[in-house]
């Protein structure tokens, strides 16, 4: 199996009150120097190998029509390789 990761983030111009609430909590926890927080979503899709261009294109369509609402969100699609999946430096 291979893992395809779809990251979804609110567009920069869309207000993210959840991210702001997280940021405002940071000083109380002793974290200083964080000037901004944006909260997003990460989807991990376990798919059969090999991940062909065609399969990636279909996942891109899936992300565009379902996982993200492109009116307010941007998304990226990438194949996670085995090394980075194990936490090794990419």
């Amino acid at each position: 199996m291979a893992r395809v990761v779809v990251d979804v983030m609110l567009k920069p111009e869309i207000l993210d009150p959840q991210g702001q609430a997280v940021q405002r909590a940071l000083p109380r926890l002793g974290f200083e120097g964080v000037d901004g927080v944006r909260q997003g979503k990460r989807f991990e899709l376990e798919v059969a190998e090999p991940v062909t261009d065609d399969a990636l294109a279909r996942i891109h369509d899936l992300a565009e029509t379902f996982l993200a609402n492109t009116v307010i969100e941007n998304f990226t699609v990438r194949v996670e390789d085995a090394e980075s999946a194990q936490g090794a430096p990419a």
């Binding site: 609430a21 609402n69 009116v71």
Partner: peptide, 11 residues
């Protein structure tokens, strides 16, 4: 319909 509904600004 165009647009989207998002989290209330005051949460």
């Amino acid at each position: 319909l165009p647009g989207a509904l998002t989290r209330n600004d005051h949460l």
